[in-house]
Nucleic acid binder design. Structure first.
Length: 729
DNA sequence: CGAAAGGCTCTTTTT
DNA sequence: GAGCCTTTCG
């Protein structure tokens, strides 16, 4: 098979330019993954390069697996040995092997986001800092920022100026201490420590430079400073570095990704070849044109011209509704129709949104319609409370110094060790500078326990429980060990007593299934690999294309995916673009890119939905349509107002989500009515809420904006016979 | 010590 | 409206 057959000239150039630095600017749907895969295959097949010498860095494990699968199809068994993975997994692999040289135990554990936050909270408690004033989230973000700019605690201290930065510095120092004590690293450390390792030990770096003669990076627009340095280090000698990206799809600046890396690439690698992939094979002409309209609103960008030979396709539907429930009804009705009338499958459709919280309403409605769906994100499996509990047991068994895990489970299930007790143990451990586990052991060995007999018994029991499990872990496989943990702690009974115990127990069984995949390793190895896996998997990784179900997914997670039908819900000011971006032009451009990413996921059909009002925090607020809707040329769009007879009324009224908004006869107004106010002019009713013997009416006025009025007092006149206003602003 | 109730903030986005 | 934290009571 000819590897470059059926490629267009640019794609071909990207594949065949094997030597020297190469920058591929690839628009959405331009065959980016295909180019990467075929380039690797070309290196192996046509240039006779040993697969072991090739490294491909991707953004998600799913992308890595996809490339691996395709490579397998292309080359058969030959591809074995290409190093494929995310920055994080590749660095973890390097550190497992080389970490000793920088004082890192090979069995280190990786703390995920939740663990990081708990650690920060612990530091705050210890140092009597107010978690309200300095939120763990903001501190973590500051620390992560420091790490992503290669500032260790000392370097950070040297440049800290504001009071906040001084606080960060203090927390940062203690945070690192605790990580080290627990033989743990966080996500950022994986990269930072690898880069440090390469800096401090040139011989090690040289080894890897020699090993990896060809390096490719996917989603280059979303790399941050450390990641970029990492690949520059690897490529410094041979300069065989190929990066593929699209500045218009850069949506991770909040994770310190820097589009500037694309510009820097041409400076850092003078003479780099640049290939533009501008032909789109994915979307219809209309979808692509709408996408171009949207992204054209960004000033900070190089103009490029995407084009396609695909048909124009059907027009884009912009649908407006009165509530998020109705919005979801619209989506459900439409998916049903597509399946019944257009021969689509459920899995052809995806619903995309800005924030995870938006998934709840469509979920509920889909259940009522019996539309199978899979939810990506939300509370992620490995972040579930019960799953983390079991993982904490495993981590503690694996490493008795892991204070964070010990704290998590010392009283789970409840064994009479309360807050006060743990605090005293922590103080004791703090003064003796030992881990909590060691502290416990020592306290138990003292003549007279400082705790009362009941607590002492509980603590002794806990210590011997862990000791026993440690011994058993030496000979039991992971599933067996998990069984023993559950058995000895009575965790199952504990779960069953809690709400939703049944399904939570099933999560444990699922975790056990995953653990069983490591059965061929020897116990220690299995433990390390398993713990690494649970820290580094992401939600899209498990996305199974075989299941026939509609997908609910955030716009961020949708990057890199494609669907025949895409619904983007919540196209409203404040949501998309998110209100946080309002006062920052840079962030606003990122919102626009995010919207662009969503739109360009669609192959055949695109629906953009917005509602007049939506519950934010229990309170309903009216929103105006997203500015991005306005940017789409009107000839590409068909507008639909969903209340205009599209929905079966009984479905709306049966819905508790909507039902309570429509009130009884006393009230002569309902949501969606067109009204006239003697002072504020014309408007539309967006909410009615009963208060005492009256109703609070929220009206979105054409001129005056949103106002809340009392029904009995407001000089409101209902405008009969008015149609539901499809385009308000 | 722990369960239960009340009060508080909170929403981006995730490897 | 929920999840998390704090307070309160048994």
């Amino acid at each position: 098979m000819d590897i470059v057959a059926s490629f267009n000239p640019s794609q071909r150039q990207a594949v065949e330019t094997t030597e020297g630095p190469l920058l591929v600017l690839a628009g959405p749907g331009s065959g980016k993954t295909r180019v990467i895969t075929h380039r690797a295959a070309y290196l192996i097949r046509e240039c006779g390069i040993n697969p072991l010498c090739i490294m491909v860095v991707t953004f998600t494990n799913k992308a890595a697996r996809e490339i691996q699968d395709r490579l397998g199809l292309l080359l058969g068994q030959q591809e074995k040995g290409v190093t494929l993975g995310t920055f994080h997994s590749i660095c973890a692999r390097i550190l497992r092997r080389e970490g000793k040289t920088v004082g890192l135990s090979p069995g280190f554990v990786i703390y995920d986001d939740d663990d990081q936050l708990s650690l920060i909270k612990q530091v705050l408690r210890e140092s009597n800092l107010d978690a309200k004033k300095y939120t763990p989230r903001s501190l973590l973000s500051a620390i992560s920022g420091a790490k992503n700019h290669l500032l260790d605690t000392e370097a950070y201290a040297a440049q800290a100026q504001s009071y906040f930065e001084e606080i960060v510095q203090r927390v940062y120092e203690r945070y690192q201490q605790l990580l080290q004590r627990g033989q743990a690293v966080d996500f950022d450390d994986l990269l930072l420590k690898t880069v440090d390792l390469f800096n401090e030990h040139p011989a090690v770096l040289e080894k890897y430079q020699a090993d990896y003669h060809y390096v490719m990076v996917d989603e280059f627009q979303d790399t941050n400073a450390v990641q970029y340095i990492f690949i520059k280090q690897l490529a410094a000698g041979h300069r065989n570095i190929c990066v593929v990206g699209d500045p218009d799809q850069s949506i991770y600046s909040w994770r310190f990704a820097d589009i500037g890396n694309i510009r820097s690439f041409e400076e850092d690698f003078p003479g780099a070849n640049v290939v533009l992939l501008e032909q789109n094979y994915r979307s219809t002409g209309n979808i692509l044109e709408a996408a171009s309209d949207i992204i054209a609103g960004n000033v900070q960008r190089k103009q490029n011209k995407l084009w396609t030979e695909n048909e124009e396709g059907v027009k884009i539907t912009v649908a407006e509704s009165l509530s998020e429930a109705e919005e979801a009804h619209f989506v459900a009705e439409e998916i049903e129709r597509l399946v019944k009338e257009e021969g689509m499958s459920f899995k052809d459709s995806a619903v995309m949104y800005r924030v995870n919280a938006q998934s709840r309403v469509p979920e509920e409605i889909f259940m009522r319609y019996n539309i199978p769906y899979r939810l990506i994100g939300g509370t992620r499996f490995y972040h579930r409370h019960e799953v983390k509990d079991v993982i904490a047991y495993l981590r503690l068994i694996h490493n008795l110094q892991d204070d964070l895990s010990l704290l998590r489970i010392i009283n789970v299930p409840v064994r009479g060790v309360g807050q006060r007790t743990t605090q005293r143990i922590q103080e004791w451990a703090g003064t003796k500078k030992v881990s909590l586990y060691d502290a416990l052991k020592q306290i138990m060995n003292e003549e007279r326990s400082p705790f009362n007999p009941r607590i002492t018994r509980a603590l002794t029991g806990f210590v011997s429980l862990i000791d026993d499990l440690v011994i058993e872990s030496g000979c039991l496989g992971l599933p067996g060990l998990i069984d023993r943990v559950i058995e000895k702690t009575g965790y199952r009974e504990h779960l069953m007593e809690s709400e939703g115990g049944e399904s939570r127990w099933e999560n444990i069984l699922e975790l056990r299934e995953v653990a069983a995949e490591f059965s061929e390793f020897e116990p220690h190895e299995a433990m390390v690999s398993f713990l690494e896996k649970v820290s580094l998997v992401s939600e899209v990784d498990g996305l199974d294309d075989e299941v026939d179900a509609a997908t609910l997914i955030t716009l961020h997670q949708a990057k890199g995916l494609e669907f025949r039908v895409v619904f983007i819900i919540g196209m409203e000011e404040g949501l998309l673009p998110h209100r946080r971006a309002f006062d920052s032009p840079e962030e606003m451009e990122e919102e626009r890119r995010l919207c662009y990413v969503g739109v360009t996921r669609a192959k055949e059909r695109l629906y953009l939905l917005r509602t007049y009002c939506r519950s934010f925090f229990g309170t309903r607020t009216a929103n105006s349509p997203s500015r991005f809707l306005r940017d789409i040329s009107s000839h590409l769009v068909i507008k639909e107002g969903s209340p205009a007879g599209h929905l079966k009324p009984e479905r709306i009224f049966n819905s508790h989500l909507v039902g309570e908004d429509f009130l009884d006869n006393e009230l002569t107004l309902k949501i969606g009515d067109y009204v006239c106010h003697s002072m504020f002019g014309d408007g539309v009713v967006v909410n009615c809420f009963p208060v005492r013997n009256d109703y609070e009416i929220t009206v979105d006025f054409k001129e005056e904006g949103v106002k809340k009025l009392l029904f009995s007092l407001a000089p409101l006149e209902k405008l009969e016979g008015q149609e539901f206003p499809v385009s308000w602003r």
